[in-house]
Each structure stands twice: as structure tokens, then as C-alpha cells.
Design a protein around this nucleic acid. Structure first.
Lengths: 153, 153
DNA sequence: TATTGTTATACTCTATAACTATA
DNA sequence: TATAGTTATAGAGTATAACAATA
């Protein structure tokens, strides 16, 4: 009888390298914005609110690919930090409208600058054409699998 | 006075696309191996032991980029599942030697097959040359930043 | 009855540090 | 004392589901 073939090498998987690089980028970024008192999930939350002006928690949950329970907890934390405020929805007594406080609005460009710097520092080892190619490949995969959620972790 | 420029778009960051695709790959994989009763961290743990035959927890912690406390908890869970066994290190009364049980050894190729299938399903939207290029770009970044830890989350 | 948002519970991973036993 | 491993604690994320108020 033939012996069991050895399992494939971890390093053969594109998913392995993707995760290794992605985790390193995210962890570096998380460490940097920690100095601003926010987590990556909170940054995505603030960034989404910045674009939308005001947003119902349920819509935000959908955009961030999180449950409404998770959004509720995030909103609690960001309210305590005075970066986000809740207002009742005048058209629906059950609903809310989330928006940035002035402090929250002021913080977003600061965090965006950190994100820019982090991205540049990490990918400057690639030539511009290589960076473009990497982006195109990743977007092609995202499109093929209909990935739309803003990644949080 | 000039108005504050709008913060850069999230989608401009390579790190954003990297995280989106990487999270999707990992979450799909996590869901699949859940059926085998293990998490991604446990899979990496089992895979490392499979290569090494037997390994001290401290070495495993270093390879996986986890603390010894985290390794200890993982080893607890995998022992309960009868996939890993602890043995005293005869040369050092403080140390241990971790190894796979027969059940653990039998499970690794099964998980490796799932990993293969997951990787293939996710990246088959790319042409072979594109897959090679993506891998080369990711390894180039990993090399430049001296990333060596097997990513776990 | 269905929906919005809150809350409770539980599990995984992470980080720090106190602790035990051995070297 | 230093090191190997365990344990406790705490925080962040994820998921499910029970719950209150409103539609």
C-alpha cells in the first residue's frame, strides 16, 4: 500500500502570504492609531460616518459587516470618547441617527493621514507599477467574490 | 484661509483591499475547518507540530508569534480534543515536549486538503500568471519587512 | 407581528503579569 | 537569579439570542 502523501506546505498557499502581510499592515496601523485613542474598528466607524454625515446604526452595521449588537457597543465607546453622538430619528421613534461630534470630525483627517503614512511605509518596497498591479489583482478578487464589507479586524 | 482637504479615500489604500480579501479568505477557511472542530490558530499549531514531530511550547510560541500564555491555552484545548499530547522533557524538569496524537496526525492532511481547496476556490479567478505574480509581490513585501510569524487570526 | 436598538452570554485571540517549579 | 510553563485578568472582536419600545 502507498504511504499517505505529506500535507501541502503552508507556504504554498496564497492565503497564507496574504494573511501574513495583511496582519502586519493592520497591526502596525492599530499600534499607530492607538496613540489617538481609537481602534481599527472605531476608525472604520468614524470614517463611514464622516462620509455619510449621519447614519442609522442598522445601515452602519450593514456597511461594516457587523451585527447591530457590535455596532451598539462601538457607538457606546465612541460616545464616551465624545467622538460620536446619538440623536433620535424624528421620523421613526425606534430609530437613531449617528453623527460625528466636532471632535470626531476633526479626528478623521488626522487618522486618514496616519493611514496614508502607514500604507506608504509598508508598500514603498514595491515599485509604483507593482503597487498598481497588486491593487488591481486584489480588487479583481474582491469583485469576483462580491466582497463589499469594510474590513474591520 | 483654505478649507481642510477631505481625508483620503479608504479605497485608495492597498492595506484596505489586502485586509478585505485576506479577511474573506480566512473567514471562509475558518468556517470550513469549524466542521472538523478546530480553529485557524489550532490548525497552525497542529501544522507546526506535524513538521517538527515534537516541540517545546516556548519554541512554538516563537514560531507562531504568540505568547507562551496563549500557547498554553491552545495546548489545553487541543489536549482536551485528544489531538495533542504533552510529555515531560527528560533533559529539563521545567520543560515539555508537545506532539501530535495519532488522531492529530491523521487530521493534519485532512485540514491541508481543506486549505488547498479554499485557496484554489478563492484565487481561481486569477490566471496562473496572475497568481504567481500576486504571490511574488506578497513575498517581496514580507521579505522587506522581515515578516516571519505564521499568521494566526 | 415585524423592526430598531440594547443587553446578556459566550468564545477566540491578544497582552500583561503574577505565580510555581525547576535550573 | 533566571527560565519554562500555568494561571488570572482585561480588552477587543464575533455570534447568537432574549428583550423593550415602537411601527
Amino acid at each position: 500500500m502507498s504511504p499517505t502523501p505529506p500535507p501541502s506546505d503552508l507556504h504554498d498557499h496564497l492565503g497564507y502570504w496574504l494573511r501574513m502581510v495583511s496582519n502586519a499592515v493592520s497591526q502596525d496601523f492599530a499600534r499607530e492609531i492607538e496613540g489617538q485613542g481609537v481602534t481599527v474598528a472605531e476608525w472604520v466607524f468614524l470614517r463611514a460616518l464622516h462620509d455619510a454625515d449621519c447614519l442609522a446604526p442598522s445601515l452602519l452595521a450593514e456597511r461594516m459587516g457587523m451585527t447591530k449588537g457590535a455596532i451598539s457597543k462601538l457607538a457606546d465607546r465612541l460616545s464616551e470618547k465624545k467622538l460620536v453622538q446619538r440623536a433620535p430619528n424624528p421620523e421613526d421613534g425606534r430609530g437613531q441617527m449617528l453623527s460625528l461630534t466636532p471632535a470626531g470630525r476633526a479626528l478623521v483627517p488626522e487618522l486618514a493621514r496616519i493611514a496614508d503614512g502607514n500604507d506608504a511605509a509598508f508598500f514603498d518596497t514595491l515599485a509604483p507599477a507593482e503597487r498598481d498591479h497588486l491593487g488591481a489583482l486584489l480588487r479583481k478578487i474582491a469583485r469576483a467574490h462580491e466582497l463589499t464589507r469594510a474590513p474591520v479586524d
